[in-house]
Design a binder for these strands. Structure first.
Lengths: 222, 222
DNA sequence: TACTTTTTGATAGTATTACTATTATATTTG
DNA sequence: CAAATATAATAGTAATACTATCAAAAAGTA
């Protein structure tokens, strides 16, 4: 039994992978494979093979690769939400909480030993590399109704509410945090692959400073 | 002959589609098809078929669907750059230019009658729906060297330089505008499909205001 | 322990996709 | 008109994205 369980909508799997050994190994291995070779190059056949299992067995847990990615990414947001809640308890001001939230979005993650089958650091890199692919599809409206994007929405809400504590008149809390969160991802990606699209030669610290400044300057009453 | 020609790196095609009638029809039809059915559901076979041509003929112009999308998106950035340059001539202050740039990113585009084979409005919607897919791949580094992302980089540079005119000490001009441009796309997408991630119930006007505020507040000396 | 249900592995098969290759026929250009 | 080039028609291959079937193994239950 896990000491900690992240809940993911039942629409995101055929059969709950957290409930069986094979299921957990599928999660673990697909994070590893997708991060390593990229979403497009992964197939259920390869996942099955590398687990010494079969394609058909992976299909028993997930309808297709897209659903599997959506599951993993929702798991990540769910887990990040838990992390944030934990860290926020130790902080008092909304501003400090927002600053810490930005750090959590950008700093590399340590393995959480309460959840041995998920490598959070690798999963974070996977999210950075693949996140928009789960909503940039023609199926977005249908999948939205199935709860494919709840994890992300909840985090945006939480952070938006903190912003409103600082300035109740701020008009764009949802837009701001969907922007900040996705910028947190893309700036990490750009720093590594398209450096001319960032100014973060100094690495994660610069990304955090950029995002924090942008966030607080946007919210501030003036 | 076109009155206006947008140049796209020769690495983005096998055979220049702007030089032949079939090439232009491929551009025109693939914008239409991709916007309508989504990148994933388009195949070269379908494009060929809907042009009353063949799959093999489309392959003569583009190596694959990914390259075709990259071509179209680069074309869009090239064209937007031209638009911006035109509009900036009529404006004096860097601030006005930045404001106008944000509007051009978000407002729907009219068909440019100098380029009859490209429907700019449809192309803009295609970019909103598909843009990150051209760089979120394992091939990004190789493709970056081939110039797959030059269009985007140039626009970020241009806008970044305007920001530096307002505040020469601003530390994150590239990060800011890669963020603003991609937020311009994603806020349009969210408003339509995932409204809980935006506050733009009032539509494009609200997106423009949100982005303009965020931009100017970030740059400002304080 | 025996019995039943559930889970997995092994295998096969289909339709579609993402190409590559070949050749004949138009079309353009010199 | 001849030569070069572009296109259409067709065929073929390997991989992908599934679906289906059945037997063996494992787990849960009486």
């Amino acid at each position: 039994m896990n000491a900690l369980n992240i809940s993911v909508s039942a629409k995101l799997y055929n059969k709950n992978p957290e409930e069986t050994d094979l299921g957990k190994r599928i999660l673990s291995k697909s994070i590893e494979l997708m991060e390593e070779m990229g979403y497009e190059h992964v197939t259920f056949k390869k996942i099955g093979l590398s687990l010494e299992s079969t394609e058909a067995s992976v299909y028993r847990y997930f309808q297709n690769k897209h659903q599997l990615l959506a599951y993993l990414i929702n798991w990540y947001w769910g887990w990040l939400e838990v992390k944030m809640a934990q860290e926020f308890m130790m902080l008092n001001s909304a501003e400090d909480k927002l600053k810490r939230a930005v750090e959590l979005l950008v700093l590399p993650m340590d393995e959480d030993e309460r959840i041995p089958h998920i490598d959070e650091g690798t999963l974070q890199r996977l999210v950075v590399a693949e996140y928009p692919k789960i909503y940039l599809t023609k199926e977005v409206d249908a999948e939205n109704e199935e709860g494919y994007f709840l994890g992300y929405k909840r985090i945006c809400d939480t952070l938006g509410n903190l912003a409103l504590q600082i300035n109740p008149d701020y008009k764009y809390p949802h837009s701001l945090f969907s922007t900040v969160i996705s910028a947190a991802q893309s700036q990490q990606f750009f720093t590594e692959h398209l450096p001319r699209l960032s100014d973060a030669a100094t690495g994660r610290k610069a990304i955090i400073e950029f995002l924090t400044e942008m966030t607080l300057n946007s919210i501030q009453k003036r």
